[in-house]
Amino acid sequence: MALPPAVALSDVVLRYPGQPQPALRIERWQVAAGERVAVLGPSGSGKTSLLRLLNGSLQPEQGSVALLGAPLPARGRARRLARRRIGMVFQNFALIERATVWQNVLYGRLGHAHPWWSLLGRFSEADRQLAYDAIGEVGLLAKLQARVDSLSGGQRQRVAVARVLAQEPALILADEPVNNLDPKLVLEILDLLVAASSRRGATLIMSLHQPELARAYAARIVALAGGSVAWDAPAGQLTAPLLARIYGESGADAA
C-alpha cells in the first residue's frame, strides 16, 4: 500500500463570497487511491461544492486539500499543472458546442501541450494518440469529426468522459453525470465511468441523485447534509431508515 490517499481533507471550510453560512465544513475526510465513492445528499447539501473543491475550481477559506498525495498549490502555474491529472465530468457536459468531438477530447491534453503551438492547434503525436484512444474507449470514433452541437445528450456525455480519459486521470470526479440522461443511457454512462476508472486504477468520486445507483456502482457511500459529512460507510450498509435521515422529509421519494 505505497499509494498515498487520492483525497485528504482536513479542517476544510468553504464559503461563497457574501454567504454567511459555509457551503462546506469538513473536519477530516480521506479517499484511498483506487476507491469508488458515491456522494449523496439533497439539493444544496454541498455535493457540487465538494466536487468543485476536489477539482481545484474552488479554494477553501481554511483547511488543507491534498490530492494524489500532495497539497493542491494555492495558485499559479503549479496549481494549473497539479490539476492536469484530476478529471471532472461536469453537470451539463461543459463542452465547446461549436467544436468537434475530436477537438473537445484533444483539449483534454491542453495542460500537457506546448503553450504556444497548441494555440495554433498543433498537438504532439502522443497527445493525439491519447485523445484518439479515449474516443475509441467511449465508442464515438464514428462521430470523430461531428460537431458537438449535432450530438444527442448521451453522446455528449460520452465526449465529456472521453475528455477526462484523455487527461490520463488518477482521480476522476463526476458531478451528477447521469442527471440529464434517459434511463437507458444512465447505466451505459455509469458502466463506462466505472470500467474506465478501474482499468486505470483511478479513484472515482461521483455525486448521484438516486441511492440505488450509488449502491450499485460505488463501494463506499458518503452522504452530505448542510455542507458536512453526515454518513460515510461501505455501500452495503446503506439502509432505508438511514436514507430517510439523510434526505430528511423528502427521503421517501428519494429512495
Binding site: S57, R80, R84, A94, Y107, L110, A113, P115, L119, R163
Partner: peptide
C-alpha cells in the same frame, strides 16, 4: 462559462 471552467480544470493556460 462552463467550457471555460472545464478547460481550466484540465490545466489549460489563460491563453488556451
Amino acid at each position: 462559462p462552463a467550457p471555460l471552467e472545464a478547460l481550466a480544470s484540465v490545466g489549460a493556460s489563460w491563453a488556451q
